[in-house]
Design a protein around this nucleic acid. Structure first.
Length: 943
RNA sequence: GGGCGAUUAGCUCAGUUGGUUAGAGCGUUCCCCUCACACGGGAGAGGUCCAAGGUUCGAGUCCUUGAUCGCCCACCA
């Protein structure tokens, strides 16, 4: 069953975002009968209405539902689940655009394609959002109690998750909505418990008291990855600790004075001559008046500071280790919220930074501050709230990563998983090879609670899939569930298989797992990708995906990563309104060159919108002219046949006209290029190819070329013209569909269609037979285009009225060229705005440039005669420039060819090619020089 | 402290394995509101490919060094 989209939340989906609600359409938006095409088509493409109509239709009809029973090649991809912290931002749009392009492409190529949607509970982030909301209402979340708080978050989740779903529908994600998942769904949470228990039973999950990264603002432990190191200008304080029983002082250096209150030793290097006599003695810890030992430990760096370091086992990971080695007491002088604890004596209750200041002041008064130096160092901050992280001693749950990492390294090294781009693969391997244990417990309320129960009687831990009745160790019923929840990435790590029903052996799991591909941003390579590989291998014995494509990030105009909290994000809804989803998708795709980040600009979006409009108007042209063809007896049925979809050229007799041969050949090339580009995730290239084909070739040349054929001629001629035009256009729509799904769907339905034509998305991607590749046609067409361009160029330089048709002269020594021009005189005249083109006989010789502007290229010369008022000087300047350019080129080529080393070492074809080119250049140069001479003579005569 | 990426037209960026005159979009200049489209058509201008060395017959492309910008990783107090 497809879920109804909840429409009742006050956050109200499309009502606030995309302008309207999703309601079932009264009738299907496509015709169920043979479609008489809509003749009335607005002049400009207005995406809003159309996108909404199709988004809704696709969703309602479950158009992209995947069936494991369907045979054929499989393509499966799971979405990187967005956090339910609000709505999708522009960064997500890139994920979705790339995934959807590839999914649609595979589906159209006949593959059994699954795009599995879903969302992530995002433990810490979501909790923060709701806590802040409550605070805004004057509610302290702790006062609500855990249960009530969880209820509030679930409520928020329904809103946010619903909004995200609606956005995904609205931007045309071709997901299977029946398979939508959430990381806290019963099935997924079940998988999480299963994994936790198994890892615990194998000893790969353990609980222990260690120094962890603690956020005093979020009030939870966070992992190493969530700790962002920030370079900062700080200070290095030198403190004097009096050595007991002497008049000496031992000087230590520290960046964190406040932690000295918890010092339990001072360490020096065992080989350090300066301090050897002090080892074993005691120093008096100032302010606290505690006697602490001087110990020797080789972890001390003799070069740093004074070579003597204070040891605070409860507040520094190194000191913690040292403390363990030397059996030192651990004195925690801080509370969880970053204030000094009772153990800090007189400083209790002070904020840690206030305490720092006070400690320095007090020591200064005592004359125990030796000196202070500026010191640049890295400070850990919380990924979520940017608060300085406090290394804190606490009991947490960890995953032992080393044994799990080994296979995850192997599969990437072996190429069983392909990580692309290549440099990310290296990054992955480096990280995996230096992996450390993963702190997975979080002191939060929103999330998946750890399935462990503590015994109040014996202190034993019972880990179980379902709530146990008694303690596993002593049988006591006095057990309590561990209050902590799991790091949100723990459940995310299982996503590719938990979403498919694991640990059950479901049909989905068999058919769609391992997934084909993972597409996500490189910023979560370690957070997510690496851990999915680890967990996938551990629990399914298979890789979770065959290929990982890591795309760039979308940055704002300042080149900073988009962030909603910082207010630096671009609102995708705004973009959709202004440009349309298709334009946004196309823009993202066209900028998504692997390896470089994307800075989105209005200019590019405007360009894409213009492209959509261009296609719209090409279609409009077809539709408004079709009546004329129908009047001559061409029927819509004839334009809706399978030949259209097969892009089979319609030949009158055995002949296909040059323009048709050319456009089919170009189409075949374009399809091949798009396929090749998408295969290697070169979205920008695919976008460019389609853009150029549609606009630069189909619109600019083909349509213009065949225009007269569409409205006059015999029924047979009209049919040929229209069939070919439709075949190319229809194929081009399919070619474009993965990039611009809405526009193409709309136009496709406006084409004559057979009954029940549901969606272009379910049609085949164009497969153009290689026999349509026509190098001869491309060459001839290129020559004709060049001739037309030469005429236009000459016209423009003569500053002729663009509307005025003028006569031209044409000379070509080659018979073939003359024949070609003669047989395509009509389009040439039309496209170059010429009244006539006088083709001179081969014996006529060069065109006299004093009579007009001559433009020449390899094999031909074309002249537009000077009118009454002509600026010969401009013409001379133009030709001189061209002559100089040629001269430079000739010189460099001549020099190159004269080099013996080049001739002997370069491949023969390169040498030969260069020689040929050189000859051509010389000929051109000669012509231009001649022309210049004549022109200058003419100029003198005028004077 | 390690590692990585970037530097190409006014702007934003492409440029596949080294090969003949380095491309696109936007902007800009000139001409056109021609019966699909001014979100348009036509024609131009605009680049010592960050710098210096090196390899090569040949370098935007490969190597070395440097400069500038950015990113990732990292328990030296």
């Amino acid at each position: 069953m497809i879920p109804e989209l909840p429409l009742t939340t006050r956050h109200s989906p499309l009502a606030t975002s995309f302008g309207r609600k999703l309601t079932p359409p009264a009738t299907a938006p496509y015709s169920t009968k043979f479609t008489p095409m809509t003749r009335e088509i607005p002049k400009a493409y207005e995406p809003q209405e159309i996108e909404h109509k199709w988004a809704q239709a696709w969703y309602q009809q479950q158009l992209f539902r995947a069936d494991p029973q369907t045979p054929g090649e499989m393509f499966s991809i799971v979405i990187p689940p967005p956090n339910v912290t609000g709505s999708l931002h522009i960064g997500h749009m890139l994920d979705h655009t790339e995934i959807d392009i590839l999914t649609r492409w595979h589906r159209m190529r006949g593959h059994n394609a699954l795009f599995l949607p879903g969302t992530d509970h995002a433990s810490i982030s979501t909790q923060r959002v709701v806590v802040r909301q409550l605070a805004a209402q004057g509610i302290d979340y702790r006062a609500l109690g855990r249960e009530e708080f969880e209820k509030r978050v679930w409520h928020w989740k329904e809103e946010s998750g619903g909004e995200i779903t609606r956005q995904m529908v609205a931007i045309g994600d071709s997901c299977d909505w029946t398979r939508e998942r959430f990381t806290m769904d019963p099935g997924l949470s079940n998988a999480v418990m299963e994994v936790f228990v198994r890892l615990y039973e194998e000893g790969l999950i353990y609980r222990g008291r260690y120094i962890v990264n603690w956020c005093p603002s979020c009030l939870t432990a966070i992992s190493d990855l969530e700790t962002i190191h920030q370079e900062r200008d700080g200070k290095l304080w030198y403190f004097r600790y009096p050595v007991i029983g002497t008049t000496e002082h031992l000087v230590i250096a520290t960046t964190r004075p406040e932690t000295m209150l918890g010092d339990t030793a001072v360490a020096v290097h065992p080989d350090d001559e300066r301090y050897r006599h002090l080892v074993g003695k005691k120093v008096l810890l100032p302010l606290m008046n505690r006697e602490i030992p001087v110990i020797a430990d080789s972890f001390v760096d003799r070069e740093f500071g004074t070579g003597a370091v204070k040891i605070t086992p409860a507040h520094d990971p190194n000191d913690f280790e040292a403390g363990k080695r030397h059996n030192l007491p651990e004195i925690d002088v801080m509370s969880e919220d970053g204030h000094m604890s009772a153990a800090a004596g007189a400083y209790a209750g002070l904020d840690r930074f206030a305490a720092r200041k006070r400690v320095v002041e007090d020591l200064t008064k005592l004359g125990l501050v030796e000196r202070v130096e500026p010191h640049r160092h890295a400070v850990g901050t919380c990924d979520r709230c940017k608060t300085d992280v406090e290394p804190r001693l606490s009991k947490q749950w960890f995953v032992k990563m080393k044994p799990l990492a080994a296979p995850a390294i192997r599969v990437v090294e072996d190429g069983e998983i392909l990580i692309t781009p290549e440099n990310r693969r290296t990054e992955y391997l480096n990280w995996m090879n230096n992996i450390r244990d993963w702190c997975i417990s979080r002191q939060l309320w929103w999330g998946l609670q750890i399935p462990a129960w503590h015994c109040r009687d014996c202190g034993g831990i019972t880990v179980a899939r379902t709530t146990p009745a008694k303690c596993q160790a002593c049988g006591s019923a006095h057990i309590e569930r561990d209050p902590d929840v799991l790091d949100t990435w723990f459940s995310a790590a299982l996503w590719p298989f938990s979403t498919m029903g694991w640990p059950e052996e479901t049909a989905d799991l068999k058919r769609y797992y391992p997934t084909t591909l993972l597409i996500t941003g490189y910023d979560i390579l370690f957070f997510w990708v690496a851990r999915m590989i680890v967990m996938g291998l551990k629990f399914t014995g298979k890789v979770p995906f065959r290929t990982v494509y890591l795309h760039s990030l979308v940055l704002n105009a300042e080149g900073v990563k988009m962030s909603k909290s910082k207010g630096t994000g671009i609102d995708p809804i705004e973009l959709n309104k202004r440009f349309g989803t298709d334009a946004m998708r196309f823009t993202l795709a066209s900028m998504a060159a692997p390896g470089t980040d994307i800075i989105l600009s209005d200019d590019r979006l405007l360009g894409s919108r213009a492209f959509a409009n261009k296609i719209w108007n090409a279609a409009r042209f077809l539709f408004v002219n079709l009546e004329k063809a129908e009047a001559s007896g061409v029927t819509l049925e004839e334009l809706a046949g399978p030949e259209i979809r097969a892009a089979a050229p319609y030949r009158r007799g055995a002949q296909l006209e040059l323009a048709d041969r050319w456009i089919f050949s170009r189409l075949a090339h374009s399809v091949a290029e798009v396929n090749a580009a998408l295969k290697e995730y070169r979205f920008h290239e695919a976008a460019h190819v389609v853009y150029h084909f549609f606009w630069g070739e189909f619109c600019d040349w083909y349509i213009e070329w065949v225009k007269p054929r569409l409205t006059s001629g015999s029924r047979e001629e009209l049919l040929a013209a229209w069939r070919n035009l439709f075949a190319v256009f229809e194929s081009a729509l399919r070619l474009l569909h993965p990039l611009m799904p809405f526009l193409t769907e709309e136009l496709w339905h406006r084409l004559p269609q057979r009954a029940g034509a549901k969606s272009i998305a379910l049609q085949r991607f164009p497969e153009i037979p290689a026999t349509l590749l026509d190098p001869a046609a491309e060459k001839e067409m290129a020559l004709l285009q060049e001739i037309i361009a030469a005429a236009r160029n000459a016209r423009a330089d003569l500053k002729l009225d663009a509307k005025r048709k003028v006569a031209g002269d044409f000379f070509a020594a080659g018979d073939e060229t003359r024949t070609l021009v003669q047989s395509h005189l009509d389009p040439i005249l039309r496209l170059a705005s010429l009244s006539t083109l006088h083709i001179l006989p081969p014996g006529a010789g060069r065109l006299d440039p004093s009579q007009g502007a001559v433009r020449a290229s390899t094999g031909f010369e074309l002249r537009i005669p000077f009118g009454e008022a002509v600026d010969l000087k401009t013409e001379v300047a133009k030709l001189s420039k061209e002559r100089d350019r040629l001269a430079r080129d000739i010189e460099s080529k001549t020099r190159r060819l004269a080099e013996e080393s080049f001739r002997s070492k370069a491949p023969a074809e390169i040498v030969k090619g260069l020689e040929t080119t050189l000859q051509e250049r010389r000929a051109e140069h000669h012509q231009i020089s001649e022309r210049l001479a004549q022109l200058e003579k003419a100029l003198q005569l005028r004077r």
